[in-house]
Design a protein around this nucleic acid. Structure first.
Lengths: 238, 238
DNA sequence: ATGTTAATTTGAACCTGTTATAATATTGTT
DNA sequence: AACAATATTATAACAGGTTCAAATTAACAT
């Protein structure tokens, strides 16, 4: 799945056109205040400290307003994410020639961003794994998909990945890996230092299963390398 | 992760030894009533219909009792699972000679059991993905691990999987795949018919990344086969 | 300006899971 | 039979997310 920001997703172009009467302006401002308050509260008190009543008070708004404006607490948490502008800049500097390297770099960048701000992103990922309602569509959209599909398609074009494997499903399976590793991180099963190596290990294994023979060497090396790192981390932890 | 029952896990040997005075007997009976009521409620009204007040009333106990006996709602849902005796019998009939086939068969059996009783198992898997507290240890225990580790170890012994890959991490990565596919099923992204093929596809990809050259042929076939089935399902759904 | 209409905010609820309290019943022991 | 230990009960309360009728406000027509 892997989450992205508004610019990459292109859904919150609120800073453009539209007459934007006083009504809409006030609404937008209230929305902004709520998001800001939510971000602050998450940063300060972590996941648990974000109560709707506290949030409403901090945003200077009634308890019902966040519901009118966003719909649910989960939607607010996800909106906080949408408001984070960082991914786009980082991803645009992806300059690896090797198509598989590019995939691993992109994953690394994501992880780096997430781990750098655990309070926010743990909360956010917890919201992603919430099974109660389906706000997943917010995260799982066309532009986000296009980015990863592009990386995989490039690898296919370069002859790194066989043409017989479904690009769509390869992407989905890689995504599954990533999501569950995030979950393990959120709940504390996986220490932060292990997130990178664990992801690389999984991606390398799976990509090796999809790659052409001549590209399996570097992937094997990556598998062994990440295993080594994971062992070191466990030894250090125990 | 993949969940198993009490016999396989070997944690609820309540039918053995222990003086089991009247006091403990009454406790056990109340526990049983609560579990039965919970299962009924889940079956009837699905995940959402399981309220602690309704549950207590149906079990004929006070609201506080389930908390004394189990600790939390989540613990009760997981206890309902532990009470399901089915896995052991099914798994004991695993008689594939090919070590990789055995892995796929085991996964198939699991999926079959889950899909046959969606109400119960969707609720249960939703509880697994709950990030609030860590009852995960209940599901993630030594005996369960031993089973899957055994299957993988056998594949290594048979020369199907290279000795250089970490068996522990291969298991974990396969587990990640399985869990996220379950999640997608629970939230309705993945239709039931697609669960089996999707899991096989992911497992085959990853195992192919870990297998020795002479075993990659059948795995490739499995990848292509499951892709084909997934395409058919999507075509039928759209 | 003024009244009308429709959208938005509000405060008070409702329903959750969970915990604390005191009172009551049940068991194990003498 | 009487006592102490233990568990359940009933009840209330708390904090959380969410919803709803009523009040308020902005936009519009006159």
């Amino acid at each position: 799945m892997t989450l992205m920001n508004a610019e990459m997703i292109g859904e919150l172009d609120e800073d453009a056109e539209a007459p934007l009467g006083r009504r809409e302006a006030g609404k937008a401002e209230r929305r902004q205040r709520i998001i800001r308050a939510a971000r602050e509260l998450i940063r300060e008190t972590g996941n648990a400290g974000l109560s709707m009543r506290v949030l409403a008070a901090r945003a200077g708004v009634s308890l019902a307003t966040p519901y009118n404006l966003f719909g649910s607490k989960r939607a607010i948490v996800l909106a906080v994410l949408q408001d984070v502008r960082e991914f786009h800049d980082r991803f645009s500097h992806l300059r690896a020639t090797d198509p598989l390297e590019r995939i691993f770099s992109a994953v690394d960048i994501q992880i780096e961003i997430y781990l750098a701000d655990p309070a926010i992103y743990k909360t956010m990922w917890a919201a992603v794994f919430d099974t109660s309602d389906d706000l997943r569509a917010t995260l799982w959209n066309a532009k986000r998909d296009a980015f990863w599909r592009g990386l995989i398609a490039a690898a296919v074009e370069a002859g790194a990945i066989g043409r017989e494997v479904s690009q769509e499903w390869l992407q989905r399976q890689l995504d599954h890996l990533f999501r569950c590793i995030m979950l393990d991180w959120v709940v504390g099963i996986l220490p932060p230092e292990a997130v990178g190596p664990a992801t690389q290990h999984g991606y390398a294994l799976m990509l090796k299963g999809a790659c052409t023979p001549e590209w399996s060497g570097p992937l094997t090396a990556r598998i062994l390398g990440s295993q080594l790192r994971l062992d070191l981390i466990r030894r250090a932890g125990a």
